[in-house]
Design a protein around this nucleic acid. Sequence first.
DNA 1: AATATCCGCAACCGCTCCGAC
DNA 2: CGTCGGAGCGGTTGCGGATAT
Length: 399
Amino acid sequence: MNIIMQLLLLGANICMLFLPLHILNISPFHHFKVTLQCILHHHYIIHSAFLLFLLSLFSQKMGRPPCCDKSNVKRGLWTPEEDAKILAYVANHGTGNWTLVPKKAGLNRCGKSCRLRWTNYLRPDLKHDSFTPQEEELIINLHGAIGSRWSLIARRLPGRTDNDVKNYWNTKLRKKLMKMGIDPVTHKPVSQVLSDLGSISGFPNTTTTNQMAYVNKDLMMNNMAPTKTEPSGSNKSVVENTQEGQVHSWQHHIPYQVLTTENVQSQVFSETASSTSSSSSSNLTQLGSPQSYSCQTPQAQTAPHCSSFDWSEFLHSDSFVWSLNPSSLVQSEADLSINAKTNGHDKQGVAAVEGCCGGSMEYQIKKQCEGHSFVDGILDRDSELRAAFPELLDASFDY
DNA sequence: AATATCCGCAACCGCTCCGAC
DNA sequence: CGTCGGAGCGGTTGCGGATAT
């Protein structure tokens, strides 16, 4: 045992000798001395800790240096006094070179933190009241067109920051769309997203009944949360039950893994827009689904059965009473009435969104029925969007 | 009334971009 | 052309108030 441990330590030390110990002001002799003492006295744990300590020092020294000394700067909420210092500094010196601001303004804060405080809260042109329906509508339309590029969206909303828009989307709009049965990522009805998934998932061409074997239906029913009753009574949203219920993942061939429906939807969305959602790769997602909901006819909500496995049929089966009800979906979309009004200062953007969404659902369905894959549809949509949103998608977009 | 849970928002984190050198 | 550092961005976290139990 000792021999094995000594061999392991020897190997680790040989590796360590390749590291430039001078960076840590540690001489190879000192390193060798510590190692030798540990081995001679069988202090393997101590020596392992020593090696880990060296490695952690290297990771700190070799990595990118922090913008400030995190341990010595104040964090958390800002006090009125600190706000006043920032305001006074900016009034005298203007913005820029934020790393020097804490020192010059007499603040014990990270410069980056100062910049964020200014841009997200203290800027005099910011609005601090709640979002208007027009702003809400614009955010939804732009998100459908360009995805989660919050800074781009915020620049079309005077007085709003990207953080404001992002928070409002995450806390209000995303949930609102989901309640309406609209996928907030693709801006498509969830039923169609699921249908699209069925056509691209590589699922074998078997009957729905066979595919149901992937799902532990009984367990799903047992795990379903009780139906919530909407205040509106007869217009009870069946969709809302999808938020509460639990289903089991069959997409990943883990039939009995218990997941919330939201998780399943997330997986669906992440698969349909695989590696396209989120910042680094949102292009396909955003380009694939620029839709203004009012453009969609009620007929468009019920996609024809183009693929061998139809998610709509799957979800509308008796067992899945929580699934999307087309009638409620239509009602919800009528309530939204996205195109009822056009924001005055952004007619161009909204017009572009509306222009490119004409018959969008029919378009997708037609494309799929013509043998286009879902990805083909996204790429086609990309081309359309580039034509419809030249000012948003061009690098030369003028804010 | 006390506690738990939910929700919204401010702030932070890590990464990328971009201009200066 | 490569490096460095400031600025910007999107995702995530955590706090504090509101609401439910």
